[in-house]
Design a protein around this nucleic acid. Structure first.
Lengths: 197, 197, 197, 197
DNA sequence: CACTAAACGAGACGGTACGTCGAGTCTTGGA
DNA sequence: TCCAAGACTCGACGTACCGTCTCGTTTAGTG
């Protein structure tokens, strides 16, 4: 996207003011309605921007929502460093569960929901958020295996799916809460999954 | 809703023909579009029924879809009986993964997706599908604990969230497929989660 | 249009209230703006009616304007009866000129203008207004010929085009006013055109 | 606008290339669409010119169209000289009718149409085209009166409105064609209007 | 057997949002 | 200072569905 360097340098440049107004408005609206009920029209109204301007830069309301989301919450839930692999995993899972139990989670859930009808949205979610976190998690698992802490026969992808799948499952289906007790028990069970038996 | 017994017995009774026409039409449409793009208007058009009739008996298109879904797929993926607990679990997970990798899965995913904006839909999903299967799974886990096969310190809910969460995670986020390899590895890892170490 | 008698009698009947609200609103707006600047959106807003309702019954804003116009001014400028043919013509021309010098004329001019881009509009104007008046005028000319008052070699169509063409010319091009002097001189010149020389 | 003589001589001079590109593009587009459907945007696109440049020199698309029109067709339908007044009139009317029955007429009609909503356009039409022709016609009528050919009691303006009004009437309302028969009968009737009885 | 009352199909209703187009204005860098 | 390019706000377009509202028409049972 940042075709920075040389590319088209003629014409009026994109207005940063409009861009941030749009993202701010989207974010503000997202906090009070569902992504489902959000509309491009409302974003335009709220941000004082023409609808055309939104459509010029984003393909749909969900794309706007995703960008707004990225801007606001990108830095959340990093993996801790310089701790044993097991601790890094459990601490990050705890942080994610925590984050998912608030606004952050509600919006992630809605993005994944919209993604069921728009594959491109889901693909964006994966490439913008999920994959890099999975990569980080895999690194840690590998480190854990190398240090003899984790079971070398593990498939890291599957292990991640189990541990994080539990979090997403509760987030999306809502049959049980992402509360403190969940976090604690999950950490314990994670040991069983990851460590050598 | 089923004010069965005594209540109002006067007036024209509900038309079974319309009911099935509606559910059939909904199901047919669901196979070619998304639940998102399904509309009450289209169901009415397709089934040759007045919109009013649909709204008289269902609160939304998702409610219709869920009923259509129930009618068609209720009997899928039972837990096998008279086998060791571990086998019962893995066989059922395999069956569910299999089912989720086709139309069944696509529609479940869309129902959960719609549920993000309509809590009542999600509640229906849980009460109509999820909970009874979770109950069955818990029974089996308890049986496994009693027989000394499974770890008695397990929280069955959490164990289920890990194992089935992995399936739902892949179904909803689509980062990896619900294929044969997944099923096999999942079964192996399930042992680690459930059995005594 | 009035498919009165038998035709489709199912479904909710058309709302007379909406119909008149639409025509009233259109007429009101026409008095303060141009037909060009009139919009379906504005009519809907002003009449408190959904846009769909307008589009259900009319093909464009001009069609609405024409109907509004018909409703309001259909009865204007009839040919007087029981007077000599010459007087009938001149009196009606005077009445028309008068009418055309006000709102009535402004709107007729705009309808004809819109008609330049939409042939169907022009066709409607001709069939709803023009032709019946021309027929009436022809009748009178024939009567005048029979009574020996008018020149029997006249082509009534052409004569009408000259006399009324002058009125429309001034209306549409605006180079000279449709004032009292015009009316008087036109009446005199009409004699020359119509009578036996 | 033509601040001709001395005024600001600094800065980049107006590009003749752009000017002709604009007028050519406008004319080309006019031949395939209506003036109504013509847009500044399309002219800019077609001529490879910035919209700003068009707005810098013309007030609207109609102004451009009029200029394009002037450039292309100004020299049409002069009054013949050195013939009897009656012949000069009828020959010119014939030529005008002829011209009006083709592209020329279609565009004139559309200019007058646009003029209903933009008075300035109509004023331009009158000053650029109509008035000079009317002046010429009046000259001829006066000549005819002086030569004893025409009725001295005539109001030339009114006479012109009758004769040319018939042509404009048919052009703009389209109820009858501007064909050969019309031209012939119009010439005959013109005699009756103009000559001494 | 007539009467009542609810369900039915049809389809019109007031709305909201869609995604697009063109209007006229503004803001760059280059000529 | 002009020009092309192109981004800007604005307002209207015509369409699709929403959920509600009449209509006239079944289709039972009840009196």
């Amino acid at each position: 996207m940042p075709q920075s360097s040389k590319s088209s340098r003629v014409g009026r440049p994109r207005s940063e003011k409009s861009k941030t107004a749009i993202l701010d408005a989207a974010w503000k609206l997202l906090k009070t309605t569902t992504l489902r009920d959000l509309s491009v029209e409302a974003i335009a109204r709220e941000s004082g921007v023409g609808k055309t301007t939104i459509y010029r830069w984003w393909s749909s309301k969900v794309a706007v929502a995703m960008d707004a989301f990225v801007e606001k919450v990108l830095v959340i839930t990093p993996f801790p460093e310089d701790v044993p692999a097991m601790d890094a995993i459990t601490q990050q899972m705890a942080a994610l569960s925590q984050a998912f139990s608030g606004d952050y989670g509600r919006i992630v859930a809605q993005i994944i929901a919209e993604g069921q009808a728009e594959p491109e949205v889901l693909a964006n979610y994966r490439s913008h958020f999920l994959l890099q976190r999975r990569e980080a998690a895999k690194q840690i698992i590998h480190k854990g295996i190398e240090s003899g802490e984790f079971d070398p026969s593990l498939d890291p992808d599957l292990a991640i799916d189990l541990l994080y799948g539990a979090i997403y499952f509760r987030l999306l289906v809502g049959h049980l809460p992402l509360d403190q007790q969940f976090i604690e028990e999950l950490s314990q069970l994670a040991s069983k999954v990851l460590k050598i038996t």
